[in-house]
């Protein structure tokens, strides 16, 4: 629908709510995603991110609120909406009874696509996923990274306008993650709208133009990664480790330094615009941390500030 800022949102949610019995998984969430944007849902496990994704795909019914995907209600027009969606679920659910190439072809058949399209398309996607030499392999023979790439290749079989990615790189090693990020960047450059959930702040910072921070089914904050960090954290963070059992007493001695202090089980975070200066003040107070590190604020710090909890427990 056209809105005040003039763009047409491809996804528009208003007061989206999902309850399972007494438990409210998604609690009155509203957001809009313009075409071509890369939009992130950042939050810990159980925050309601996957439930939102399932409602976008029309495979979970909302309890209340309004939802439009490309102008249609995915609950009432599920098959039509999903014809334009690509979905990468949190867990690879490849068809273990079919070979690698057949996974792509049969998935394309689910969209009603003809074989004359699917034969060249599946070959092209296997190359894109760097699985060209695995076409005839069984799924069980693939590594974790290969399965993930195949799942992403499969989600592209219908040339989707919107790609839903639920925790796309969870469980992958750093190299495999970077390969995957590169592929997602290419899709974004082609104008594909990306909607992704993640509990990795670096992933959100790398891939998202804009994101919402979700906790316990509610939106805690929203904006671009840089905006969120500016609004909810200091420029820099000083991380100090004093060793097990000594963090709490050291925290007392640090009182008054920086803008804010967070005591975590394994370390102390001091938020300040100049981390090195605060470190100097701490040493001047006679503190001797086992390790110290000054870094820029990240979305992890934003999340900690907003919820009082870490993203990864």
């Amino acid at each position: 629908m056209p809105n005040s800022s003039g763009y047409r949102a491809v996804v528009s949610a208003r007061n989206l709510t999902k309850r399972f019995g007494d438990f409210t998984a998604v609690d009155g969430i509203s957001f809009e995603i313009p075409a071509g944007e890369s939009f992130g849902l950042l939050g810990p496990n159980g925050a309601g991110k996957s439930t939102i994704m399932r409602m976008l795909g029309g495979v979970s019914r909302r309890t209340s609120g309004e939802l439009e995907v490309m102008g249609l209600d995915p609950e009432r027009q599920g098959p039509e909406v999903r014809a334009h969606l690509g979905v990468v679920p949190q867990q690879d659910n490849l068809d273990e009874e079919l070979r690698v190439r057949d996974n792509l072809i049969i998935y394309g058949r689910y969209f009603g696509l003809p074989m004359s399209y699917l034969r060249p398309k599946s070959a092209e996607l296997l190359e894109f996923a760097q699985l060209g030499d695995k076409a005839g392999a069984r799924i069980g023979e693939l590594s974790g990274g290969m399965k993930r790439r195949l799942t992403i290749a499969r989600s592209l079989i219908n040339d989707p306008g919107i790609l839903l990615l639920d925790e796309p790189t969870t469980g992958l090693d750093p190299q495999a993650r970077h390969v995957l990020w590169d592929r997602l960047f290419r899709l974004k450059e082609r104008g594909t709208t990306l909607v992704l959930t993640t509990h990795y702040m670096d992933e959100a910072e790398q891939l998202c133009d804009r994101l919402i921070v979700v906790d316990r089914g509610r939106i805690m904050a929203g904006g671009s990664p840089a905006e969120l960090i500016r609004a909810h954290s200091s420029r820099e963070v000083l991380e100090l480790r004093f060793g097990a059992g000594r963090n709490a007493s050291a925290a007392g001695a640090l009182a008054g330094l920086g803008e804010r202090i967070e005591v975590l089980p394994d370390r102390i975070l001091v938020y300040a615009d100049d981390g090195e200066a605060v470190l100097g003040q701490a040493v001047a107070r006679g503190l001797e941390p086992a390790t110290s590190l000054v870094r820029r604020s990240s979305l992890e710090d934003v999340f900690l500030r907003l919820t009082g909890r870490s993203l990864i427990d």
Binding site: R8, V10, A35, G36, M70, G71, L72, R76, Q77, E80, V81, H84, K121, E124, F128, L156, D159, G161, I162, R186, L187, R190, G191, T192, T193
Partner: peptide, 13 residues
């Protein structure tokens, strides 16, 4: 990788 999308179209139910 197929056609470049000029933004996702709106669908007719």
């Amino acid at each position: 990788m197929g056609p470049v999308h000029d933004g996702a179209p709106h669908l007719v139910p």
